[in-house]
Design a protein around this nucleic acid. Structure first.
Lengths: 199, 199
DNA sequence: AGCACATCTTGACACTGTCAAAATTGCACC
DNA sequence: GGTGCAATTTTGACAGTGTCAAGATGTGCT
């Protein structure tokens, strides 16, 4: 769990707090996380966390940031070990995206929660970074278009926006318990790939 | 604003509370709504609302319920006055859905917020009702398939799940401020219709 | 008028985020 | 080794929150 540097009094309180917060969120949901409960769990006083995170929101933003990194890693690694054929690539990508989101909803909820994106503490750097992730997806689409695998009727940007919306929507509906049939997840992902990429 | 029956002490407190809550949410967001502030705004004591709503959650669920009704009305009416040609119908539907969601995010946030769907007070009747709305959409897709306008390669259920995910995803990303370019909304909706329905 | 009941208020409790001031600790330097 | 400084943590406090139990108040019916 993080680099545990045992430096000052506690030793990497910051990292410990992040990890503990993620665990609370996983078990009790975002609303189940309170700064005081978190401090208790870690064994420090209620306001110790405020020396490492300006805000509760800052803590959540930090976790969201970590989420972006983790998801990118997960998708890249899934892509790396899959078949190089276009159809397989696309399938892999779609499944990897939704799978990660559903299995790590503690992160995903925060990554795309409105609080982080419209918060009073405008996380400019944060928004810019995640915008980078989206741009990488647009580039990906563009490559697929140039190699003739998907239609060029729409601009890469538009196609990326719509197809990503779909991935996001599927993930959200599964996470929020609106699509209750968990066993349908695979089928839905495959259907999405079929529709978007004519796989 | 509701039927204002002026019956007992206040006169339709329940309806007044709902309306006031919606307004607070529109201005300050869901997290800006507190039962006490709401009671203040309406001019009653802090715990008066608890005689009309068991919970804060019950209030939110009631608003969400109203949202489902309102959105269905909006979409139906948009559909009714549009051209009867398939392409126009689909375009109309997509735009109507996303438009309503974006313009009434006070409702939309609650309709598909995880709290309502996984809350400790399982709103069984609520879930069943909204499932009805989804089924209506599946039926709509089925009709489109039978009339040969969209591919029958996928089952109506799967197609409905994926395409609705897309509508939901687009709406969410716009509402949450992740798609910042509001002027792109129209273009994104049109692109979605193009991809899904080969309009 | 009086009764039953719906409706509303007051007081209270445990919990929340967050700040200011005070206390503690670790490290660098003499 | 002792001393001072700065990083770190704690304690006390305040305003807000959801919600409940008991009491107060008004309404309509007989």
């Amino acid at each position: 769990m993080t680099t545990a540097k045992k430096s000052y009094h506690h030793g990497d309180l910051k990292g410990t707090l992040e990890d503990a917060a993620v665990e609370i969120i996983r078990v009790e949901g975002v609303n189940g996380l309170s700064m005081r409960k978190l401090a208790d769990k870690v064994g420090v006083s209620r306001s110790a966390p405020y020396h490492h995170f300006e805000d509760k929101q800052a803590l959540l933003s930090a976790i969201a940031h970590k989420g972006f990194v983790l998801q990118a890693e997960a998708i890249d690694s899934a892509e790396a070990q899959g078949e190089p054929a276009f159809e397989a690539q696309v399938m892999q990508f779609v499944h990897a995206y939704v799978n990660w989101a559903v299995e790590h909803s503690e992160y995903y909820d925060l990554m795309f929660g409105s609080e982080v994106w419209q918060g009073s503490t405008p996380p400019e750097q944060f928004a810019q970074e995640s915008r980078g992730y989206f741009r990488r997806y647009v580039d990906r689409v563009q490559r697929w278009q140039e190699s003739g695998h998907i239609s060029q009727q729409l601009s890469a940007l538009r196609f990326a926006q719509v197809s990503w919306s779909s991935l996001h929507g599927i993930s959200r509906l599964l996470i929020d318990g609106i699509y209750v049939d968990k066993k349908a997840q695979e089928a839905i992902c495959s259907a999405a790939a079929t529709i978007f990429f004519k796989v």
